[in-house]
Amino acid sequence: MAHSVALPVITGGDSIESYVQRVNAVPMLTHEQEVDLATRYAHENDLEAAGQLVLSHLRVVVSIARGYAGYGLPQADLIQEGNIGLMKAVKRFEPTRGVRLYSFAVHWIKAEIHEYILRNWRLVRIATTKAQRKLFFNLRSMKAGFAALTHAQAKEIADDLGVKPEEVLEMETRMSGQDVALMADDSDDDGYAPIDWLADSDNEPTQQLERRAYDTLQSDGILHALDSLDPRSRRIIEARWLGDDGSTTLHELAAEFNVSAERIRQIEAKALQKMKVALEPADA
């Protein structure tokens, strides 16, 4: 039985540069080698062959991920999400079609990175329809300079992307808007923030009693829900959602349990669903 190839991951002590050096040191495959490995994986479920296909194309993920550096998200997370897309591409790759894996994988890598960006770039999702997603990922590069678009410029971009000028202007407004802090900066004694305009009901006795009862109920409920999980699922949920030092990445947990990041994602989703069911009596 074939063993899977150990893939490099970005751990907490790693730098992006050292990871890039490692993946760039892996030689690219020739067309013949690629076809042979893909055939072994497709016909014999040879996981070592699949691992070699992924390993030789990690540099492709790095190259694509760098194109999304302007969204303010950690480059390591963009790369790791792109790697998931690469693994999906390898799983679906058919060498008999005469297309190189590089060309086939680009779509899957970008799709996974796009989904990650849309989930995390803003607290409020700004691109939910297909047209909005197309605008979100193309407007930055098509817009000349930082000045607001004129109607003529918006129409030109709209024609190129097959959307309405109004949709272009709306997306520009969404993307140019900044998240406003609820609290004022401590260094600005004269500054006002949205919280200053909100009524303070914290000292109202019934609100305090209700909140205290709810917090107790929820904390007990969460502990009960965690107890319903098997040890591996509980470890994943605690690391992803309940850690004090930020959530652990899918790839860190994948390395810990010696499985794929996609498998960790599946276990996490199943565990959250099980916890939701366990919490329903508390919510009621």
Rank of each mutant, 00 (worst) to 15 (best):
E48K: 01
T39C: 02
E204L: 12
A199M: 09
R240W: 12
Y71V: 14
T129H: 07
L73Q: 04
A239Y: 05
L29M: 11
S260M: 12
V23Y: 05
I113F: 07
I84S: 00
F93Y: 15
S56A: 15
R22V: 11
V62F: 02
A255S: 14
W197N: 01
V163M: 07
L118I: 13
D185F: 05
L242K: 02
V9E: 11
R40A: 08
G162V: 10
L7A: 00
H114L: 03
R265N: 06
L55K: 13
L229G: 04
P165H: 10
V124G: 00
P165C: 09
M183I: 09
A127H: 10
D179L: 12
T150E: 13
Q52M: 12
L279H: 07
G51I: 08
R22C: 02
Y19W: 15
R119H: 11
F257H: 08
D189A: 14
A89P: 05
R263G: 01
L135Q: 11
A65Y: 15
L7S: 01
E268T: 11
R240Y: 09
P8G: 01
M87K: 01
S187E: 15
A38R: 06
E32P: 01
M28I: 03
G98M: 13
S228D: 07
D245S: 13
S228R: 14
R66H: 14
E167L: 09
I84R: 05
P194V: 06
A199R: 09
M275D: 07
I64H: 01
D185S: 13
I113Q: 06
H43Y: 07
L78P: 10
Q266L: 15
K134F: 00
A225K: 09
V124Q: 10
D185I: 05
E256K: 10
K110S: 03
G72S: 04
D46W: 09
A225Y: 08
F146S: 15
P281W: 12
E44Y: 11
A76C: 06
P205A: 05
V168N: 05
Q80P: 01
G145I: 12
W108Q: 04
M183G: 00
R235T: 14
H57W: 03
W108K: 02
A65P: 10
S201Q: 10
Q52C: 02
G51N: 05
E32F: 03
G221W: 12
R240G: 05
N83P: 03
V20E: 15
